[in-house]
Nucleic acid binder design. Structure first.
Lengths: 194, 194
DNA sequence: TTAATATCTTAACCTAGTTCAAGTCTTACC
DNA sequence: GGTAAGACTTGAACTAGGTTAAGATATTAA
């Protein structure tokens, strides 16, 4: 397994010594997923924080009516998984699944705690990472309320130009908070208007 | 100014020595706001991270059409402000304003950096705080997509029972992502159905 | 190659939520 | 005390987006 991707993402924010790098890598469990396979199923307790090394995963939530609601797409360089379940060790309400053949690195909860205890630089790294992630989520919230579905679709395409090629449209619709039928309408309207 | 509230919120997550407590407090700038006054205006660069000691603040975003979109209410014990502007030192798109007479504590960006440099325990505190905040934001996102306006209003009332008494309804409507008119309708329907 | 299954689109009809305009109730201020 | 301004409600007309159901296009499996 290639660790250069995850290390370069970390060293964008903090500097690591060789020792810190080595220890960090020693904690990670590499795993390969084929398209459609699960990294985490809802109902299970989340034991690992997940880093995407290559490929693409999505996390979704199945509501009472049985509808899947896509919360997040995660491609190379992203952390994903259910933080709430990881923190509280309650069963997760989310499912995380590979949209393409993917390589992921699992950081088990107890190992992560060891890491944070031992090398303070990782407290800093995760503080910065969560802080940035929070900003992203705030933006998505504004996006969801202030824009129409069509605007959200445009913004999605700008932001994730590579995703649309291999993510089924129904999941994109779900991510945008609309039905696949309505996304179809938007796309059709676009075609005729140029 | 009384620092027991902020200290107790911190020591819920990490332990502080007397020295760390003292240093932390020495960085804070107390400020009193009367109802309606601004803690931060959009267009300005955010210099401070804001902690609410008493009272209540709201943060909103004014979109291109001139509509205010309420992002967050923050009452005693909450951190608020614009993290994106604080990080990047670009002008903020948010306004933060007192909904009631309030006491706030400002932690200036440079002081915060000093603090994190000097006492690692605060890296840990803010890491945990941002991590929890992220979970809250994820939940709000699901809430926004998966529930009707009426369900969101019910959940809001359960979650913030004290707010409705002094927050103007139009801001609650904005927080819920609907128009004041439609909130009126929901309330009316509720009355007649019991 | 064919059946089977999942994805995507179309169209008719339906509803949650918006827009706009008017009217009531407070609160604040000269 | 009168009037101005903001907050809340009401109702009628409208629209973004949902629902249902059917058909068209992949994609997969055998």
């Amino acid at each position: 397994m290639d660790y250069s991707s995850i290390l370069s993402h970390i060293t964008r924010n903090v500097q690591l010594t060789k020792e810190e790098e080595q220890f960090f890598i020693s904690l990670l469990l590499p795993q390969k997923l084929k398209q459609g396979e699960f990294a985490q199923k809802s109902g299970e307790i989340t034991c690992n924080f997940i880093h995407v090394n290559s490929g693409c995963l999505m996390t979704y939530f199945t509501d009472l009516k049985g509808n899947d609601q896509v919360i997040q797409f995660a491609s190379s360089g992203w952390w994903t998984g259910d933080l709430h379940s990881l923190n509280t060790q309650q069963p997760s309400i989310y499912t995380t699944r590979a949209l393409a053949d993917s390589e992921i690195l699992l950081l088990p909860k107890v190992r992560m705690e060891e890491l944070l205890e031992r090398y303070q630089v990782f407290e800093r790294y995760f503080r910065i990472m969560f802080q940035n992630s929070l900003v992203t989520h705030q933006n998505r919230l504004i996006e969801a309320f202030a824009n129409t579905a069509e605007e959200r679709y445009s913004n999605f395409q700008k932001k994730y130009p590579h995703l649309e090629q291999f993510v089924p449209l129904k999941y994109i619709a779900s991510y945008l908070g609309i039905t696949p039928e309505f996304l179809s309408k938007i796309r059709r309207k676009r075609m005729s208007n140029g």
